[in-house]
Nucleic acid binder design. Structure first.
Lengths: 221, 221
DNA sequence: TAGATTGTTAATCGATTAACAATC
DNA sequence: TAGATTGTTAATCGATTAACAATC
């Protein structure tokens, strides 16, 4: 349904944000919106919004704008949220537990089917209605549930061999919270990195630049 | 110390990753590295690495390369990790607790000075050696510790008024895990957004594109 | 019809890559 | 010195913005 197969990541990464804003508009009973008004609310240019959307098709009506609910649904479909991909979570430490409890997987295109860990302290604990399974069950779980995605909330050192094993078990996507860089080591595998430490250091940088340009006119966003 | 004040975010966002790779090299006893070898390990071009580093100064030696430890320290300094900015964490739910326990703030340029929440269920709980304080103490805490940064692990609805209050208390940086978009509503304020839901939906998109280009030759990274 | 707003092409801007002279 | 590799300029590539004809 896409007009072109090679859509740039810059465009893709804006889609979830459009999706959030459209959801809010929808909830507030807004029926239609023009690229101009949406651009003002989101802090973008109207041109960019129209360009982005037209990568996937003409969802608007000339002279009228976009129907909020329809556009919301289209973007959800483009993001593939209608298909629930089976995923497992590896590592039930602080971060793993938070992700398991906090994320709304079903509304983001995933179904969490199991949580696994290697530590006897956490195996058997109950998280989000699931028993934490011993890591040894990984093969069984992947086979039984056709697991396609692994969420890595494990220490860096543990990552490399686990990634190898998971790939051999037909896992082809990773939501990676570990400090290990999967991407370029494994071409063909789909990776979304969440490097929280990197994000925090970026904020540190911004603060420091701001300090230098101190009392003066400036601030970098 | 920067050669130019306006360094693009594309460059900045690569710095933490350089920092991680250099740390590993350092730990493995590697003393010097050329842009070429680093580029191969990181999956970048050597050209890009040299361009990036030269935004901040000439850290290398012609004919030799870069001294790993020195470059590591320089990048740390550029990121401002030597200055510990006082920060508070708002919201001691799953995500807030995970962030408090999991993040190595001191090595990323921050010092976590307090955790606050509005729910009687969590107020008084002990997290990382700190009692969770009632949200009403926010003014006192900000004043006493010269808090510059707030980490938002709160629901979307709670964010807007809190952000206003925090700005009036001289908080000028946000590490934002909430679904509320601070950035363009508050120019001049420094924001680093961590939209985990957006990241997850992006992964969903990649999987779906891959499904379409199925058995065939392709996969988008 | 007149007014509004899209879809799309063209112009601009920025980021990445290539090339090479400078120099350790 | 010869070889290696940087720092930096020039060329290319991609992404954003502007403009406008198409059309609801």
């Amino acid at each position: 349904m896409a007009k072109d197969d090679r859509i740039s990541m810059s465009v893709i990464r804006r889609l979830p944000r459009y999706y959030r804003f459209l959801y809010d508009l929808k909830e507030n009973g807004v029926v239609r919106i023009s690229s101009k008004e949406l651009s003002q609310r989101m802090g973008l240019t109207a041109s960019q919004i129209r360009q982005d959307l037209n990568c996937f098709g003409g969802f608007g009506q000339q002279g009228y704008g976009y129907i909020v609910e329809q556009l919301y649904n289209e973007i959800g479909r483009i993001l593939g949220l209608n298909v629930l991909t089976p995923a497992i979570l590896l590592g039930a430490g602080n971060m793993g537990r938070a992700i398991a409890n906090h994320m709304n997987f079903e509304e983001r295109g995933f179904k969490l089917v199991a949580i696994l860990d290697s530590s006897p302290n956490v195996i058997g604990q109950r998280i989000r209605g699931m028993d934490v399974l011993p890591i040894e069950k990984i093969g069984e779980v992947c086979r039984d549930h056709n697991v396609e995605v692994a969420i890595l909330c494990i220490p860096k050192e543990a990552a490399p061999p686990l990634v190898e094993q998971l790939i051999s078990l037909n896992v082809r996507g990773f939501w990676n919270f570990s400090h290990y860089d999967i991407s370029h080591n494994h071409p063909g595998v789909l990776v979304e990195n969440v490097h929280l430490g990197d994000s925090l250091m970026t904020l540190s940088y911004k603060l420091n630049v701001d300090r230098k340009n101190n009392g003066s006119l400036n601030s970098s966003t």
